[in-house]
């Protein structure tokens, strides 16, 4: 579902990053391991089209995203990608349901309340539907972010340190949920983390080496 080859990225400072090839199939998870500064986030942002690479190609669901222009990329992100970040970055002014509804709205697809309820139910958040973001616990907020990432049935879910701010119990719960919904929606799941606790959960792993800058 995602396949990268020969991707390299040059920072504005002049140093460049040579990234390993990644291939993850639909419904499969993959762990992207590495210490801070090893380029995990950069690789993830490149794959998510949030950054432009100078070389190489990234195919997601059969499309080479390096060939898309900005508007096409925006649209592609909305349709085929779901993001989960370390800090949940939910929109504080909106309710839980509105936060989730942002995804189909920005993708230009119809907002089906039934689908929102279904996803909330799957993540055991049904009764929090109209709650404010500030009323949620850390774990609940993480689950809302996951719900928002999967609502559009994306081909690829990119998670950046989704568990590092959670305690052991919540960490396991969150990763299990991520695996579960990714499999349920047949999405490839790429988790970038330095969280050693995840090593035992996801078999496919790619180790990023610290770059000599």
């Amino acid at each position: 579902m995602i396949k990268t080859s020969n991707v390299s990225y040059a920072y504005k400072t002049g140093s460049s990053l040579q990234l390993p090839d990644v291939e993850v199939r639909a419904g499969e998870p993959c762990l992207l391991l590495g210490d801070s500064g090893s380029g995990k986030t950069t690789l993830l942002h490149l794959m998510g089209g949030l950054l432009r690479m100078q070389q190489g190609s990234i195919f997601i669901a059969g499309t080479d995203i390096s060939r898309l222009n900005e508007a096409q990329l925006d649209h592609f992100r909305a349709k085929h990608l779901g993001f989960v970040f370390q800090r949940n970055h939910l929109i504080g002014a909106l309710t839980v349901a509105q936060n989730i509804a942002m995804a189909p709205y920005l993708a230009g697809s119809k907002i089906e309340q039934a689908r929102i309820v279904e996803v909330l139910e799957e993540l055991q958040l049904k009764e929090k539907r109209n709650a404010r973001i500030s009323e949620l616990s850390l774990g609940q907020a993480q689950r809302v972010a996951i719900a928002r990432a999967v609502i559009n049935k994306p081909a690829l879910i990119l998670a950046d340190e989704p568990t590092s701010s959670l305690d052991d119990t919540n960490c396991m719960r969150a990763i299990q949920l991520l695996l579960q919904v990714a499999e349920h929606h047949q999405a490839a799941l790429l988790v970038a983390t330095h969280d050693q606790r995840l090593k035992n959960v996801i078999k496919q792993q790619i180790q990023l080496k610290a770059q000599n800058q």
Partner: peptide
């Protein structure tokens, strides 16, 4: 700015 970045990552155009 986080909201804006998040919305951009979700496919909101500039």
């Amino acid at each position: 700015q986080y909201d804006l970045a998040i919305m951009r990552s979700m496919g909101a155009s500039r």
